[in-house]
Write a protein that binds this DNA or RNA. Structure first.
Lengths: 226, 226
DNA sequence: TTGACTCCCATACGATCGTTTCATACGATT
DNA sequence: AATCGTATGAAACGATCGTATGGGAGTCAA
């Protein structure tokens, strides 16, 4: 009702469809798929109850669509951060710089307090109760980003065993996800968050370097305070 | 119907109540509070639909009760692992030993494949959508365990700044939670899991030691390959 | 035997859910 | 002007939800 009742056909349709996606994203993030009713979504979007089935064919497909809309850009954004940082970073502290840049990029959607907060919650939910088509989440976001980050770390620290790096990337991301959960519940002060990121970077950089040959002695890559 | 229809009054009642708790725990863990119906629970427990309201006063209180039943023993079990390991461990690798013991204790409920798997999922859910009374989860499990582990690490590595240790404990637990999620979805082979635990221990031990004085130079506690 | 109490059952109630149906209004096309 | 496809609206459908109700079976004390 904010715009003219119908506008031109195509334009009006797009508006309703997008308003549904926006409301759905917010509500699905807040309460989950099962606990969000179509009536809630359409009411918040200022649309008719039947609009969801008309535009998307059902509640579940609206859920998938509201997810798909974000997955691609999030993936490209994160990978771009990685390759960009890798391109212009050299020196003994390159690993820390890379991890810091990725961490900030990773948590950025959460800090802007805008619609970004939603996506992070949707991701956490999807990790617990997968509702997306098989492999969509892993294939379109998690897998590529993980691979890109591991590759970048290996470019910086070529002496580390690839297997160790892959696991360390998991450890690093696990901490970021955990911090994201914490921030999501109690939106901490910006400075406090920066300190937390700095901790994760230092903690993880040491962890990345903590292994040269898996079984026996510790890493001694001479890059350790060169 | 497995036992005699009623048995003695007290005994029969206890049986139904406990069967409800068991089924509720499993189903709440699998699908969440909202997505689990009272009818499902009572059907699986072989009880009447009204039994939930009779014994617990409602669905939500059954949820809380099925949680409370486990929180205390889990907390004591984890703290006991910490203090016990701390008591009988000395030497340069004491930190690794402590972390390994805690990690195995932490993931143990997941590996037994019995009812333990449930609790882990319930915890992950509770971290996303808190349904328990305010502070119950944090106060009865998370807080005490976190404090106990931080204290133990400080006893082993007294030179580390307490602030850093507290954050590092978070980082360590974040990795365990992440691994728990992974194991929960795709129950990996036992050996694969052991290797993953070993990685987390080494990664985290390095992270714990990665800081002597927060801003400037790295930790050099001389314990690093003494 | 009676009454009180505990536990369980079958059933019903009101609410809410996702989805479907049918009717209408508008712009574009012929 | 007549027609068609698109977008929306109001209303209803059948299903399922959590909870409430009333009664029956069992035990125990008086």
């Amino acid at each position: 009702m904010l715009t003219s009742p119908h506008a031109t056909a195509g334009e009006g349709a797009r508006a309703t469809r997008d308003r549904l996606l926006d409301s759905a994203e917010r509500l699905f993030a807040q309460h989950g798929l099962a606990a969000t009713s179509v009536r809630e979504i359409t009411a918040e979007a200022g649309a008719n109850l039947a609009a969801v089935n008309y535009h998307f064919g059902g509640k579940h497909q609206l859920y998938v669509e509201s997810f798909r809309r974000r997955l691609g850009v999030l993936r490209e954004q994160r990978i771009a951060t990685i390759t960009e940082t890798l391109r212009r970073t050299r020196g003994a502290r390159a690993l820390e710089t890379l991890l810091r840049a990725f961490a900030e990029s990773f948590l950025d959607p959460l800090l802007v307090a805008e619609g970004g907060r939603c996506l992070m919650r949707m991701i956490q939910r999807e990790m617990l109760d997968p509702e997306l088509p098989e492999g969509m989440f892993e294939g379109e976001l998690v897998g590529p980003v993980r691979a890109s980050l591991a590759e970048a770390v290996l470019a910086i620290e070529p002496d580390l065993p690839a297997d160790h790096v892959r696991r360390a990337v998991e450890s690093f991301i696990a901490q970021l996800l955990h911090l994201a959960r914490t921030l999501d519940r109690a939106g901490a002060a910006r400075s406090e968050t920066a300190a937390h990121i700095e901790h994760i970077v230092r903690f993880s950089a040491a962890g990345f370097r903590a292994c040269a040959h898996p079984p026996g002695r510790r890493a001694r890559t001479r890059r350790d305070r060169g």
